[in-house]
Simulated scan of single mutants.
Amino acid sequence: MAPPLSRPLQAAPRPHRLRRGERSAVGLFVVPFFVLFTLATLVPVGYAVWMSLFEEESSGLGFGGTHRVFAGFGNYAHALTDSDFLRSFAHVAAYCAVYIPVMVGGALLIALLIDSAMARARRFFQIATFLPHAVPSVIASLIWLYLYTPGLSPITDLLGRLGAHVDFFGSGTVLLSVINISAWQWIGYNVIIFYAALQAIGRETLEAARIDGAHETRIAWSVKIPMIRPTVVLTLLFTGVGAIQLFDAPMLLQSRAITMGTSWTPTMFIYDAAFRGHDYGLAAAGALLLALVAGGLSFVVTKLGNRWKES
């Protein structure tokens, strides 16, 4: 019996090359992005770099006006040797040490509880956790400023009746007060991100784990969390970068918490230098140094996250 005829080998399809008209259309759609990116990002950053190299000097005992002189890296040296600026980074480091685990770990726990097979009224809990995020940051800070103020807050009145007198503006508690405001507002945002990632896990995978006898806690730890590692890393990155830009809550609380000062965070130091001290060179240098710290933090989190995803 003759062997069956073999099919002729087909050449691999050639990659589609864009024609001149198609390349023009792609470029036309890309140009608006680069224009907006240049105007909204590159130009302000370049202007900040230029401003950081100059400083204002007054002449004639202050009666001769001010003029701008080239300072080189003098503003950067001033910022890096300013005790208030360095202390502000220490405050943010302590803030991040508590805030980031609470935000990521707490949001992940809530999302896992909502996604569990035993959960009820999932839509209600999604809305309830996300609702504080709909409140603007300034309004949220004002709400909690009211709730922290003795004589106005029902919380302090209730604690007083129970014999617990808590000073939310004290030097030992103000950090936790700020963390509470930020976590209350932003944790629901992370919950929605984690819950969306959990919904993308194949239901057949979870059913197979249940058939094998795994309980919900084991499924969450051994199946769900490993499958959403990229989302956890991305959320950790966004949370960390957002944390070092802390401004609204401490800016409002410092009006009552006199121990905080006007430079409690790096962003508050930059604001104080620019709009109270009118030292725009120092403010620009501080902003660029803060951006470098954010970039370094992003690099470290990304590297550690990639190792965790590969493990």
Rank of each mutant, 00 (worst) to 15 (best):
R17V: 09
V69G: 03
Y189L: 07
L162G: 08
D115Y: 05
A90F: 14
A79Q: 00
L112M: 08
C96M: 11
A140D: 03
H16K: 11
Y99G: 02
A111I: 02
N306T: 15
Q199V: 08
G106P: 01
P230L: 12
A121M: 13
L253F: 05
H278Q: 15
V30D: 12
A196Q: 09
D115H: 07
F54W: 10
E56D: 14
A77Q: 11
R20P: 01
G296N: 10
R229A: 11
E310K: 14
L234M: 15
M251C: 14
Q126T: 12
M260Q: 00
G277C: 13
E207C: 09
Y148A: 00
F275P: 08
V104W: 00
M260G: 02
A94S: 09
T231P: 07
S311H: 14
G105D: 04
A111R: 01
S6M: 12
P8S: 15
L42Q: 10
T66L: 13
R229D: 08
A79V: 05
L290Y: 04
V49G: 14
L145R: 04
P226D: 08
R120H: 11
Y99V: 01
A209T: 06
T231Y: 09
S59Q: 15
H78V: 09
E207P: 03
N190Q: 11
K309I: 12
F194I: 06
F89Q: 04
A284S: 07
F275W: 13
T259A: 15
L5Q: 12
G242A: 05
A128I: 12
F85W: 04
T38S: 10
V135G: 03
Q245W: 08
F275S: 12
A243M: 00
I228A: 02
A283Y: 04
K309L: 12
V233N: 05
F269I: 03
T239E: 01
G74F: 00
L18K: 05
D272Y: 09
A71T: 04
R20V: 10
S177F: 03
M260F: 06
V138I: 14
F269K: 04
V166W: 03
S177V: 04
A200S: 12
